[in-house]
Amino acid sequence: MSIRTTALAASALTLIAGVAQADVVAHWTFDSEADFLAGMVKDVTGNGNDLYIKDGGTVTPEFAAQFSSDSFNTPYVNNGSVKFNGGRDASNSQAGQFFQTMVDAPVNAMTFDDGYTVEIMFKLEDVYDSSVNRWMGMLSRTEKPNGDSPATFAISNLGEVQWQTQDADREVERAVWSPVLFTPGQPNTLDFIHVAAVNYEDAAGWHVDMYINGFLGSRNIINPDHNGLAAYPDGLTNVGANMWNNGIGNYFNGWIDDIKITDTAIAPSRFSYLPEPASFSLIALGLAGLTRRKG
């Protein structure tokens, strides 16, 4: 068992920083109000992975998604986000709107055998209510036979970001975690956060690292025999929900500004959106001391 510092792990990825943008297979920027009002979010790569709005549970106005002008200020063209309002109704039943690809969207069938990078820019409410929104999903794949998602980005009941996947051979399921970013019931002082899951191979094997605002922040790592993602016949890609109780649920409550999926591991220098260094010094301090443990 060896311990590697975050600096060493980050340097292992710098060699692939120059990969061409053609490897971006899906990119949703959520910045068109006209598209949102038409019930969709376009895949700006032109690869045909457009998203379409869906209702989960009984969607009354308080659970409906909304277009928002609130977005992360970047040098890129991004004029908005989608505010998701998932939660629980008076009977404690889950409700919310989410987006989903069509069955024939190319991203659904990809297994990413050569690695991947999944990036999300998101923001939560002023207070994270884990009693209502625990395990809410930002991005997920459906559908594994037992009802679990073969891949999901979610917010845990403790306020961590979790990336959980099943490998392309459908044999290994693992999760990688951030530190606690949102203490349940306490004021949330964080604005938009960029999170990335990077699946790559080095001399020790295959791994998945999680980056928070460009800092390597994995609390756990996925073991060396885990590469790629499982894909299931007729499986779909969801934004704003994940698999729960053998169906779609755990609807997101917060803002999603950008999601990008790349079919190789990329370095932080190629991440879509990174805040100015001074704007996330607290996160940096929290992640700087983390180490990674590999078998």
Results as ranks from 00 to 15, higher is better:
G205M: 01
P179N: 09
G217K: 08
N227T: 10
I193H: 15
V180H: 14
Q186S: 08
W244G: 13
R174V: 13
T237D: 10
H207I: 01
D209N: 10
V176T: 11
N220Y: 04
H226W: 08
N188G: 04
H226E: 12
I222V: 07
P179K: 02
G240Q: 03
D202C: 02
D234W: 02
M210N: 06
S218L: 03
A204L: 15
H194L: 00
D169T: 01
E173K: 14
A231Q: 09
F215D: 01
V172N: 07
N220F: 12
S178F: 06
G205I: 09
H226Y: 11
N227H: 03
G240M: 01
P179Y: 00
E171T: 11
L181A: 01
V176G: 05
L216Q: 12
N246I: 02
G235R: 15
P187C: 00
G235V: 04
V198G: 10
T237M: 13
N250S: 12
Q186C: 12
S218I: 10
F215S: 03
L181F: 10
G214D: 11
G205T: 09
V198S: 12
F192S: 09
Y200L: 07
P233D: 04
G217F: 00
R170E: 04
V239Q: 07
P179S: 01
T189N: 12
N245S: 08
I193G: 14
V208M: 09
N213F: 15
M210V: 10
N250C: 04
W206Y: 11
I248V: 14
V198I: 03
G228S: 01
F215N: 09
F192I: 00
P233Q: 14
G235S: 06
M243Q: 07
P184H: 14
F192W: 04
D169N: 06
G217N: 12
N227G: 00
A196L: 07
G247F: 00
N188C: 03
N246H: 10
S178I: 02
L236W: 12
A203C: 14
V180N: 02
P187S: 09
V176C: 08
W244L: 10
S178P: 14
S218N: 08
